[in-house]
Nucleic acid binder design. Structure first.
Length: 526
RNA sequence: GGGCGCGUAGCUCAAUUGGCAGAGCAAGGGACUCUUAAUCCCUAGGUUGUAGGUUCGAUUCCUACCGCGCUCACCA
């Protein structure tokens, strides 16, 4: 098939390239085919600045006041008041728009999301200011000093007596009315999204405030924030395929963690009885509205309690975080009202499925009888390979989407939960719950399995599943077993998907919207 | 990977049945001393995602490919 050789397509490489190989250089898509007029104009002004001895990227910035602080300071002081006071001010910011009237020019400065209008009047402003203003483009960072006045319309305005270029922008900002719409461009060039789309900025702030509120809540309850390894010789704590990497010095295979769980419980063994970690986990799996290959997980462990304690903890946590971030516990998520104030209803997975589709999973304790039971109620059992997976499939399809208000689903089958403690009343089940909100899993918790012999047996059982082809089976972890053989106190553990929590609080439809830099397909060569 | 949809100027979007590819913003030139989506006049900006095909003629119809979105599957 050499006949239709394509010129544009480079031959596929079969060997990995060194990261410095120039062929791997990222090439922004718009590279060659843009109209260059605007960038040439900006380049020309850059050159003009340099020609007149002005550094367009100076190292030093004279002191400035933050725009927010300035607005607080001035308040609603009136026009005459300001004129009488001759109020001086100096601010820095990005020029977001310019309006000129021949002899009077206005331009808007934005710094940390706050705007201040500046002005320069011919005959009033120093000639150097007016001359420099000719070289200023929308997008440039500048420092302005001058005196404050109010326009006829009451807008607080800084009449420039001094103007300094702080950073010349060589590319235009996106359209000022509609902002940047293209989903891909918004994700790839998040800085533009943040600059021109109010919602993007709001979401970023909500995320940061959420993490801060989580920390504050847990700190207030005596939890200790810790950091555990991201690079692990053995991954575990969740059902997922890992990323694999390599440590040269020991010629050692390492995995990027899929959860923090096993290390945090080692710390509980060590007497750090209340610990938490907020960190990135990595799962080598598909992307979706609710999944990113790397994501932020909060895990916390509390000794001398159990999954009931974790239910109370997470109820209090969500209520507290919502109040801290939004000032209220009632939120709207994709058009649906949700109340994050507890307590949340609790339902066993058995009851949930019995109600949703009339199947009693405990009355059908193996794959074949469960398949038959599912068919008996007119549903397709699909090709789930194990009983546990079929339960999971049924739940995901029939129950999960309907759980809009916060709901605890409890008492999972032991086969799905190799690290959770069995229920005393029914050894087929474990003391575990998952928290669902807006049809989405937000949290997962259990009474931690602290019987080392049972734990070993569970790992062995997982090994059998792995041998049967379950790529997500939990690996045997002798080092972890050694730790809990020293005695893990009764412990409740909780994991919360931070990004998903932010989706709720920011009313974002996808994880991609709350992830500043979501994973995207690599850009094609230009 | 399957299905559906989309891809037009830097950005946001039009283009009748297949008949000369347009507007606003941004840019360049000009007018204007209270605008804040300023306004007005002029100018420039395009291989319509790529490659083929049908046709006198393709942004429009067909095929393949690339990319994006939604969705299903995979997957927490």
């Amino acid at each position: 098939m050499r006949g239709g050789q394509r010129r544009g397509r480079p031959a596929r490489r079969h060997r990995p390239l060194h990261p410095c190989d120039p062929s791997l250089a990222r090439r922004p898509r718009e590279g060659g085919c843009v109209s260059e007029a605007e960038r040439e104009a900006r380049r020309a002004r850059l050159a003009a600045l340099r020609a007149s001895g002005i550094d367009p990227y100076p190292a030093r910035v004279e002191p400035v006041e933050r725009i927010a602080a300035l607005r607080d300071r001035i308040g609603d002081a009136g026009a005459e008041d300001l004129e009488a006071r001759v109020e001086p001010a100096a601010v820095a910011g990005r020029v977001m728009s310019m309006r000129s009237f021949g002899k009077l020019r206005f331009f808007d400065l934005v710094e940390d999301g706050r705007k201040l209008q500046a002005s320069a009047r011919k005959g009033e402003a120093p000639p150097a200011v007016l001359a420099l203003l000719d070289q200023v483009d929308v997008g440039d960072a500048v420092r302005v000093e001058g005196t404050l006045w109010r326009t006829k319309t009451g807008e607080l305005t800084l009449a420039a007596t001094g103007l300094t270029m702080l950073a010349k922008s060589l590319r235009p900002l996106p359209e000022k009315w509609h902002g940047l719409q293209d989903v891909e461009a918004r994700s790839r060039q998040r800085y533009l999204d943040l600059l021109v789309n109010e919602a993007a900025r709001r979401t970023a702030l909500i995320r940061s405030h959420t993490v801060r509120a989580l920390r504050s809540f847990l700190d207030g309850r005596g939890f200790l924030e810790v950091e555990t390894p991201v690079l692990q010789p053995l991954y575990g704590g969740a059902a997922a395929r890992p990323f694999v990497t390599h440590l040269n010095v020991f010629d050692q295979r390492l995995y990027l963690r899929i959860s923090d769980e096993l290390y945090l419980k080692r710390l509980v063994v060590g007497g750090l009885d209340r610990v938490y970690e907020i960190g990135r986990d990595f799962r080598n799996e598909g992307l979706s509205r609710k999944h990113n290959p790397e994501f932020t997980m909060l895990e916390c462990y509390q000794a001398f309690t159990d999954y009931n304690g974790m239910m109370e903890l997470v109820e209090a946590m969500f209520e507290d975080v919502a109040r801290s971030v939004l000032g209220q516990t009632r939120i709207e998520v994709q058009g649906r009202e949700i109340e994050l104030g507890g307590p949340y209803p609790r339902v066993t997975i058995q009851d949930a499925l019995r109600e949703a589709c009339g199947v009693d999973i405990l009355a059908a304790p193996d794959l074949e009888t469960l398949r038959a039971a599912v068919r008996a109620v007119g549903l397709d059992p699909g090709d789930a390979p194990t009983w546990g997976r079929l339960v999971d499939d049924l739940f995901s399809e029939k129950v999960e989407p309907s759980l809009v208000q916060p709901t605890f689903v409890t008492d999972y089958p032991v086969e799905l939960s190799p690290l959770a403690k069995r229920k005393a009343s029914d050894p087929r089940l474990v003391e575990r719950f998952e928290l669902f909100v807006a049809g989405m899993e937000l949290g997962n918790a259990f009474s931690e399995l602290n019987d080392p012999d049972d734990q070993r047996a569970r790992f062995v059982e997982q090994g059998r599943a792995a041998a049967e082809g379950d790529e997500e089976a939990h690996p045997m972890d002798e080092d972890y077993l050694r730790a809990i053989e020293h005695g893990l106190p009764p412990t409740g553990g909780l994991g919360v998907g931070v990004g998903r929590l932010v989706m709720l609080l920011a009313d974002a439809p996808t994880l991609r919207e709350v992830e500043l830099f979501p994973h995207l397909r690599p850009e094609p060569p230009a």
